[in-house]
């Protein structure tokens, strides 16, 4: 183990760290949006679109991200759709993450009691108002545990981006190992880098989960 190797690699790792963080943030935010829209469409059983999105969710959840990325990066250019590696990565992550988020929200929405829906309807709300003021706030609180698990899952899933040569953390570490054969040093930095991202995220999510459960919500 050589400290010099580690310190020399830090500037490169810092860049990769920023990229992983950036890709994770964009991927998570977009996945949550896709998930919310998908689950609301399914919740209100919007004709046709609901069916299409069910197919999407099943397709996305039942294929590995690795294969989805190969498709986006290697197969799509064949039909004339060429995108940069980073765009492919984000699209793949959101394709997968959106489906996972949708399942999480669907579970939360299903947990909103039917009597709450009756209340909202009896007060003259239309479907949109019902979604906004009743189903969503209560269902969102109920889906917090799933949401938290998905956020952590998606951050870790960015490591798969290494296969399409996006210079994020894992790709960078593998590259450096390939060049200098110092696996111990680079893998140590890699693990620490992921921990620096994930540990605060997990703590924050735990805090939010508790807040939502014991705060103004719930019984």
């Amino acid at each position: 183990m050589s400290w010099q190797i580690i310190t020399q690699s830090l500037p490169i790792f810092l860049k990769a760290f920023e990229l992983t963080l950036w890709l994770s943030c964009v991927g998570i935010v977009c996945s949550i949006l896709v998930g919310i829209i998908t689950s609301l469409v399914q919740y209100f059983k919007v004709p046709i679109l609901g069916r299409v999105l069910t197919v999407y969710v099943e397709l996305a959840r039942n294929t590995p991200l690795l294969i989805q990325l190969f498709f986006l990066y290697y197969a799509f250019p064949v039909i004339g759709l060429k995108m940069s590696a980073q765009v492919c990565g984000i699209i793949g992550l959101v394709f997968l993450g959106g489906a996972y988020m949708a399942e999480g929200f669907t579970g939360g929405f299903a947990g909103v009691s039917p009597s709450q829906i009756d209340d909202g309807k009896a007060l003259g709300m239309n479907d949109l108002q019902l979604a906004r003021y009743v189903v969503f706030p209560q269902g969102f609180a109920l889906s917090m545990p799933a949401l938290a698990a998905n956020i952590i899952f998606l951050i870790k899933e960015t490591s798969i981006f290494s296969v399409i040569a996006i210079p994020e953390l894992t790709n960078t570490a593998l590259d450096l190992i390939g060049m200098y054969y110092r696996s111990n040093e680079y893998l140590l930095v890699l693990v620490i880098a992921y921990a620096i991202i994930l540990v605060p995220v997990i703590l924050l999510l735990n805090f939010v989960e508790r807040k939502v459960r014991y705060g103004t919500f719930g019984n």
Binding site: S113, S115, Q116, D118, D119, K121, A122, L123, G124, M125, N126, Y133, V134, P137, Q138, A141, T216, F217, G218, N219
Partner: peptide, 20 residues
């Protein structure tokens, strides 16, 4: 129905208020 329900108030057995 949605428009009419503003004129037809209803209260249920479950005495649910919106908890949030």
């Amino acid at each position: 129905w949605q428009a009419l329900r503003q004129k037809i108030g209803m209260v249920f057995q479950s005495y649910d208020l919106f908890p949030n």
